[in-house]
């Protein structure tokens, strides 16, 4: 029997619903996670179901006490998520777009991430911050995407912070498994949805399952070069691998899934076998996960390398609006193929 196909946003919805059914301590809080709150008298109780539809239907099933619309006040409601997590609940708070972290970083970093350590291990903070990342990738010529404040990936900020975990699913299957794992995890986890993946579908099991946080997934086996992808970039790597196959190159593709903790073993094992590495990351390049992976390999596998490690990333710039500029910002399969060629050209230098 062919497996059930499910859309990314439905897979997230299913993970939330199943975890709320399983554990009465789980609740959701954020702007418009139901939408139209306070209008029940008009027959309006779930107008938006989340800005991206991921929480649709949950208020009908779990009520307004477990699906809480908030005013616009990220610092306070994410801070409140920390307080609730400290005192026996397992909140999922929604930070609409990751760039809004600018107004909530204290709650996420100085509170959620540091508390356990600062308090000498007395507490855990089982908080999930669910957020959206990525450029929408509008085609030129006219108009563009959502511009700088709504298109960043910037998960490297979270990877930098000890105490915080951060996962970036690449398809509906990993979305459900990682969101489930994030909710079950005893530490704060930032869960990042790439907006361009929301409408993609793949086979997703009906029953609840958790994918281990801190574990990458090898999605294609090869022996000539390893591509490491993050989130939507995994699909870009797979397209590049198809093109490279036409040139007779067998490409290994590692889907990182978790940017913190980092699955060092899977990356190192693949690099030691394929002897070449290109890391593909939509985030800006400086202090990025891409360069962190490159540094890991320089440190632990340099003797195995036949070619210099290359990274293909966003530009060192805020994400632009105009379609032509946005396309120039986001890594493409062509740029990945070119990076592989460049690495091989530089071999032995």
């Amino acid at each position: 029997m062919a497996g059930r196909q499910l859309q990314f946003s439905r897979a997230e919805n299913e993970a939330l619903r199943q975890e709320m059914e399983r554990d009465a301590r789980v609740f959701i809080m954020g702007e418009d996670v139901a939408g139209g709150a306070g209008r029940a008298a008009l027959g309006i109780i779930d107008a938006w179901g989340g800005p991206m539809g991921a929480t649709k239907g949950l208020i009908q099933q779990f009520g307004a006490e477990r699906v809480i619309d908030t005013p616009i006040c990220e610092m306070s409601f994410i801070g409140a998520g920390v307080g609730a997590a400290l005192t026996g609940m397992r909140p999922v708070v929604e930070l609409l777009f990751v760039n809004f972290v600018g107004v909530a970083l204290d709650a996420i970093m100085n509170q959620a991430a540091y508390l356990r350590y600062m308090l000498g291990g007395q507490v855990s903070v089982p908080l999930v911050v669910k957020t959206a990342i990525g450029a929408v990738g509008m085609a030129p010529p006219n108009g563009g995407g959502s511009a700088a404040q709504h298109s960043g990936s910037i998960y490297s900020i979270f990877a930098h912070i000890p105490g915080l975990k951060c996962v970036v699913p690449s398809d509906a299957y990993t979305a459900k498994g990682l969101l489930t794992a994030a909710i079950r995890d005893d530490d704060p986890v930032v869960y990042c949805t790439h907006r361009r993946l929301l409408t993609t579908s793949c086979e997703v099991p009906q029953e609840p399952y958790a994918l281990p946080i801190g574990k990458a997934r090898t999605v294609r086996r090869g022996r000539d070069v390893t591509l490491v992808g993050i989130g939507r970039m995994t699909g870009v790597c797979l397209e590049a691998a198809d093109q490279l196959a036409g040139e007779g190159l067998q490409t290994e593709v590692v889907d990182l899934l978790s940017v913190s903790p980092l699955d060092e073993d899977t990356v190192l094992e693949a690099v030691r076998r394929t002897r070449r590495l290109v890391v593909v990351d939509e985030d800006e390049p400086r202090c990025s996960v891409a360069r962190d992976v490159a540094a890991l390999v320089a440190d632990r596998a340099i003797d195995y390398l036949d070619a210099p490690v290359k990274t293909v990333t966003g530009a060192h710039a805020p994400v632009p609006f105009s379609g032509v500029l946005e396309v120039a910002f986001v890594p493409t399969p062509e740029r990945v193929v070119a990076a592989v060629h460049a690495a091989m050209r530089d071999e032995g230098r």
Binding site: E31, D32, G36, A37, G38, R39, D69, P71
Partner: peptide, 11 residues
């Protein structure tokens, strides 16, 4: 309104 949230709920 702020998105779909009415002012009498949020404030």
């Amino acid at each position: 309104y702020a998105e779909s949230t009415p002012v009498e709920y949020a404030l």
